[in-house]
């Protein structure tokens, strides 16, 4: 996943050299993202409607059904029409916020996703903010004291966490903190009414999933912040700052770090795809009622319309986040702004 970032930074550099004007740059990026979104929609249709074959046959596998019932079911699900017609219906439905109807729950997929969006945003948001803060802080320390014991231990820990499957880390935390934190869900049933009590209860439930997600994503921020600061450290303006008689601490805080922040800031958006993957397993472990758990539940069926809906939302949001990263990079980098 490091190469994902590298690839994008390299692409950004190419564009910088080309010196395209801002409106053209934005239009190009937005157009590219729109094309990607259409591709995601097509891919979703291909994966969940064309490859699996007849959903009615799968659904009625264990029950005796008459041909009339089968035909009725096919008509209700809209799978009796030719493929191209199905695709047009599905594509048109998307514009009206219609993601189809779940096989398992017989409810609109869009409603089910809407209900689960909040918890996922809470989990992902909290973990990302904490990961950015922790990762940058550790990365700055590690780079400033390069090759020290602290640096080597930090890089080692980051590498090890990189090799750890997220769900296993979650399971370990569950077993290590036996009973200290709730093992599943987002709320306890017996908590009194009132904002404070409710929030505390949610925070208590949030601790373990959040720590698990944090442990896996902070390492990227740390490594990027470290290497980015290392690149700045040979710069002459730092020698100048020191020659002025600035304390080491001030040289770092006022001069080196602001210049090294850029890659880490855009990483927040670029890394979103990895965070999304992480939430699926973490939510499955802790039964956190978000999109990840919804995916996990949909896999039991498999509930194809539901899976398709979650796939569209997750993939779509990753594309939007990447677009934001590319646009933000242009806004933040003064070298690009000036041209």
């Amino acid at each position: 996943m490091t190469s994902t970032t590298d690839g994008h930074l390299a692409a950004d550099l190419d564009e910088r050299r080309a010196g395209t004007s801002t409106p053209r740059f934005v239009a190009g990026k937005v157009g590219g993202a729109l094309a990607s979104l259409v591709l995601v929609v097509v891919l979703g249709f291909l994966l969940f409607r064309m490859i699996p074959g007849d959903p009615v046959a799968t659904m009625t596998r264990d029950r005796p059904t008459s041909p009339e019932q089968l035909a009725l079911l096919r008509e209700r699900l809209g799978v009796d029409k030719p493929m191209w017609q199905q695709f047009l219906d599905y594509f048109g439905g998307l514009f009206q916020g219609d993601l189809g109807t779940s096989y398992m729950y017989s409810r609109p997929v869009a409603d089910m996703i809407g209900e689960r969006l909040g918890p996922t945003l809470l989990l992902v948001g909290t973990a990302t903010v904490l990961a950015v803060l922790l990762g940058m802080w550790l990365g700055i320390r590690a780079a400033w004291k390069r090759d020290s014991a602290f640096d080597r231990v930090q890089t080692g820990v980051a590498l090890t966490l990189w090799s750890v499957p997220q769900f296993w880390l979650g399971l370990l935390l569950l077993i290590a903190t036996q009973g200290l934190f709730p093992s599943r869900g987002m709320r306890s049933p017996d908590v009194p009414e009132g904002f404070v009590a409710q929030s505390l209860d949610v925070a208590w439930h949030l601790t373990l999933p959040c720590v698990t997600l944090l442990a896996v994503i902070y390492a990227q921020y740390m490594l990027v912040m470290r290497s980015s600061l290392l690149e700045e450290m040979g710069s002459e303006y730092l020698t100048t700052a020191r020659a002025k008689g600035l304390r080491d601490d001030l040289v770092r805080r006022r001069h080196a770090v602001p210049n090294a922040l850029l890659p880490a800031v855009t990483l927040v958006f670029l890394q979103f795809g990895m965070v999304v993957s992480g939430t699926i397993t973490v939510e499955a472990v802790f039964s956190w009622p978000g999109l990840g758990l919804l995916t996990y539940e949909a896999l039991r069926g498999p509930d194809l319309p539901l899976l398709q809906g979650v796939f569209l939302v997750l993939a779509g949001s990753v594309i939007v986040m990447n677009l934001l990263a590319e646009l933000l990079y242009r806004v933040l980098d003064p070298r690009v702004r000036a041209s």
Binding site: T4, G7, S36, L39, V40, L47, F48, I51, P52, G273, M274, V276, S277, I280, T295, L299, P302, L304, L307, F311, L314, A315, V318, I319, N322
Partner: peptide, 17 residues
């Protein structure tokens, strides 16, 4: 396009169908 998409989500989709 595929570089941006989270590979785990795609792999889940593929292996579920």
């Amino acid at each position: 396009f595929f570089l941006v998409l989270p590979s785990l989500v795609l792999a889940i989709a593929l292996s579920s169908v």
